[in-house]
Design a binder for these strands. Structure first.
Length: 490
RNA sequence: CGGGGUGUAGCGUAGCCCGGUAUCGCGCCACAUUUGGGAUGUGGAGGUCGUAGGUUCGAAUCCUGCCACCCCGACCA
């Protein structure tokens, strides 16, 4: 039916790639591991940014911008941080090129930097180096700053949106007078992320905390939201870290408290990236293409006229113009596609591929009957509805689609959280049903590592709302007090 | 970094084994007929065959080096 999209059941990875390319979201660039985000894909990212940015501001944060380059020496100041990122850093060593006399441009070896610069993989170090100059007293706290930026992590293998060498993200970096306040901030931002994932993206997530193995390099605790994709693999959709005083100590950031004591500052950092695009695509789309939740769709309603003569088109357009005016007043984004260079069938397929939630087709027949043909992308149902009252019906329908998309993903996930009570059962589930597997774990990094090596499944998180129950670890047989969520992940 | 694969028109490809200036489909352009689910016909444009060198009268084809990308693994907060 749809041209050129591999079926989801046939080859999930290829299906994903096909959608990214055919829906015009992104493409591979001439630079290894880096992608070009195309205008349509970028417009979705912009919608995400706008919503998140407002949420950050509503919770008291301000945006700022820090350098792309980080002096190498900054990195070595926090031991576990450098260890975590050392193997994937791009390093700037020279600042000038020259002509070698044979028409080739080469690096000018005489222009070697005294200290190499790291292209930021994350900005904790440069930011905490800066915060040192901003903080003297408890009166200077808290600092609640967010940065929208690009970062570079030199991964060996990449996948469009899910893992690219350069990616776009936001990183919040906050400084507080007390541990309690920093933890509250960490948890608050996790809630912001979860709210965004569920109520805007329509992707249900598990809020949880990472095991020490999976923690951010330099954090005391890493909180996360974990989503489930349609192939049963998990995707970490966002993280929020409680950094304790690690970076304050590394960069000597102290403040004088109300009581007159000199103390190290407490910190949090939190981020989501263009990886959310990958989550959005994989969570909802089907073999006909992208399915977008109305709240993030750049085009919410597309209108396609069907006509034979200019007179018919003029007649339709007159009606459409007033409809568009009404819908725009309601804040609905509408596209009227009256190109006469493409036929209606082509347009139908194209907007389905691009995930536009609602499509109206209006022909001469409709104009006589006072109707339109309305198709919704999520269920692919078509119906004929009256022109009158569309401005009431469409907003309701968009809301309905938003709910339906979420519910579908929610039900899928509910069916794919399965308890396992033995290692055999665990492995069978992984290779068969997949999804999250809820199992007892003895709490040791050794067991976690063994399970990872043997099955490629990792502990995605310990859910925050976890019930305590006595049991035995599926791997070691040692006693356990709660189940944790395992899955194979992206 | 290890294993495998691929580079030929905007995209997807045939030709390569067995050397003689490149095939087909989609797309693109023009015109006509069309338009309620990816139109049809006719005509047309578009190529340093990834790159550098070698062998040869002659290289997309054989040989050597290099580059790029993709897949699998290792890796990946």
């Amino acid at each position: 039916m749809s041209k050129g999209i591999t079926s989801k059941n046939e080859d999930y990875s290829q299906w994903y790639n096909d959608i990214v390319i055919k829906a015009d979201l992104a493409e591979h660039s001439a630079v290894k591991g880096c992608m070009v985000i195309k205008p349509y894909g970028y417009s979705i990212w912009e919608k995400m940014q706008a919503v998140l940015d407002q949420k950050f501001k509503d919770t008291g944060h301000s945006n700022a911008y820090f350098p792309l380059f980080i002096p190498k020496s900054f990195f070595s100041k926090e031991a576990s941080h450098v260890e975590g990122f050392a193997t994937e850093c791009a390093v700037v060593t020279h600042y000038r090129l020259k002509n070698d006399g044979n028409g080739n441009i080469i690096v000018d070896e005489t222009a070697k930097l005294e200290e190499e610069l790291i292209v930021r993989p994350t900005s904790e170090t440069i930011i905490w180096n800066t915060y040192k100059g901003w903080i003297q007293s408890y009166r200077d706290l808290p600092i609640l700053v967010n940065q929208w930026a690009n970062v570079v992590r030199w991964e060996m293998r990449t996948r469009l949106f899910l893992r690219t060498t350069e990616f776009l993200w936001q990183e919040g970096h906050t400084a507080h007078a007390t541990a309690e306040e920093a933890i509250a901030e960490t948890r608050q931002m996790l809630d912001v992320y979860a709210d965004f994932a569920e109520n805007w993206m329509g992707v249900p997530v598990v809020k949880g905390v990472k095991t020490p193995n999976e923690r951010f390099a330099g954090a005391l605790d890493t909180y996360c939201i974990e989503a489930l994709m349609q192939d049963g693999k998990a995707l970490q959709a966002g993280t929020s870290h409680f950094l304790g005083q690690n970076f304050a100590k590394a960069f000597d950031v102290k403040f004088t408290s109300k009581e007159g004591k000199l103390e190290h500052v407490w910190a949090s950092s939190w981020g989501v990236s263009t990886r959310l695009m990958g989550a959005l695509i994989m969570a909802h789309s089907d073999d006909a293409g992208l399915v977008l939740p109305p709240k993030l769709a750049p085009i919410q309603v597309v209108i396609v006229p069907i006509y034979k003569t200019d007179e018919e088109l003029n007649n339709i357009s007159a009606f459409v113009d007033t409809l568009i005016a009404k819908l725009k007043r309601l804040g609905i984004s509408v596209k009227y596609d009256d190109r006469d260079t493409q036929r209606p069938g082509f347009k139908f397929a194209e907007y389905e591929l691009k995930g536009v939630p609602v499509r109206l087709a209006i022909g001469a027949r409709d104009m006589e009957n006072g109707t339109v043909e309305l198709a919704r992308r999520d269920t692919r149902e078509k119906q004929t509805v009256n022109q009158e009252g569309l401005e009431i019906y469409i907003p309701q329908l968009l809301e309905d689609i938003q709910q339906n998309i979420y519910k579908k993903a929610f039900d899928f996930r509910a069916e794919h959280i399965t308890p396992a009570n033995s290692y055999e059962e665990f492995k069978e589930l992984l290779d068969g049903k997949a999804g999250f597997i809820s199992a007892h774990w003895d709490g040791t990094p050794e067991t976690e590592q063994k399970i990872k090596e043997e099955t490629k499944a990792t502990i995605r998180c310990v859910p925050l709302d976890n019930q305590q129950e006595d049991g035995v670890c599926i791997y070691s047989g040692k006693p356990s007090t709660q189940r944790v969520l395992f899955a194979r992940a992206y």
